[in-house]
């Protein structure tokens, strides 16, 4: 379970241009942690594969609404509890998903 995620592939992030480079670097660190936690806790249901490539979905701001996502559905109610993912970890995952580079639209 734990090893599955630890692939070397890096995901690109998109930060607002107004964000100072030092802050961007800080956020990038958080996003890296968030990515690993996403892989452990979320990818099994949310990551899809297309042409051999793993695709992490683009969630909108409403879907990334902090603690509410713990009870969005039955799976989350059982698997996204505080005993499985702490509040701090959840916030790292949400940071990662918010700044992750958006997927290219397939035509």
């Amino acid at each position: 379970m734990l090893v599955r995620c630890a692939g070397p592939k890096k995901v690109a992030y998109e930060f607002p241009t107004a964000m100072a480079p030092a802050i961007q670097a800080e956020y990038a660190k958080q996003c890296d942690k968030g990515k690993i936690l996403y892989d452990i806790n979320c990818s099994r249901c949310h990551t899809t594969k297309a042409k051999g490539k793993e695709i992490i979905p683009d969630f909108n701001a409403l879907q990334l609404e902090t603690y509410q996502i713990r009870i969005t559905n039955e799976t989350h109610e059982n698997n996204l509890t505080e005993t499985k993912v702490t509040a701090e970890e959840l916030s790292l995952i949400l940071t990662f998903l918010a700044y992750k580079k958006k997927n290219e639209v397939l035509k």
């Binding site: 603690y67 509410q68 713990r70 009870i71 969005t72 039955e74 109610e77 505080e82």
Partner: peptide, 10 residues
């Protein structure tokens, strides 16, 4: 039974 209420959080 499944919950959609934050009151069941803990």
């Amino acid at each position: 039974v499944s919950s959609k209420n934050m009151l069941d959080y803990s």
